[in-house]
Amino acid sequence: MDIQVVHRPGNSAAKLTLDAGESVTAEAGAMIAMSADVGITTTTHKRGSGSLTKTVKRWFAGESLFLNHFESRRAGSEVWLGTPLPGDMTSMTLQRESLIVQGGSFVACESGVEVGVGWQGFRTLLSGESLFWVKLQGTGKVLLNSFGAIYEQPVDGELIVDTGHIVAFNETLQFTLTKAGGSWLHSILGGEGLVCKFRGKGTVWCQSNNQRSFGTALTPTLRARSR
């Protein structure tokens, strides 16, 4: 499978070119156009590896309950994938390794990659960000999206990232949730709240914008809920 991302970073979309018999699993609703002879099936799980619990977990992660499987019947057929919000896309290749992806940032993966959901504990709940993370595991290409532009942050030792700016990270990294400032009061007043402290060697993919910050900035201009 060949992945080409166009119109980066603001209006990105990805063109996947498939060989005959190749298949790709994508987040429901991501397809914007495709060759007419590409087959599509919809399941609640990655084919051949699913269970209902996984599905429910994915739903909690802010992902759709459903995944679409696109299957090519000839070499060179195309599938175009887009993102719901303005932002960037990036692809990478996994080699028998795991990638932890923020709920909502998963777009697609090749058939050699399994889509699972990792429980990150109750502490994540406090951060106000996604409770679950999607775990991509195996060998093959994966495609992620972000709100705003994506940039890589190599970690060798320790690095602190605001929870709202994490797109994905290597599973080789350990992380703990902690306060940003010296005291809890300063952390909360400073608007940083909880941050992730990564430890080890690996890469964190970050997004330039924070969905919650933009959303709350819009709040005063929106019409109030009726009840």
Partner: peptide, 10 residues
């Protein structure tokens, strides 16, 4: 796709 895709594929 099929009817399942119609309702659930997004």
């Amino acid at each position: 796709g099929g009817y399942k895709s119609l309702f659930f594929s997004g």
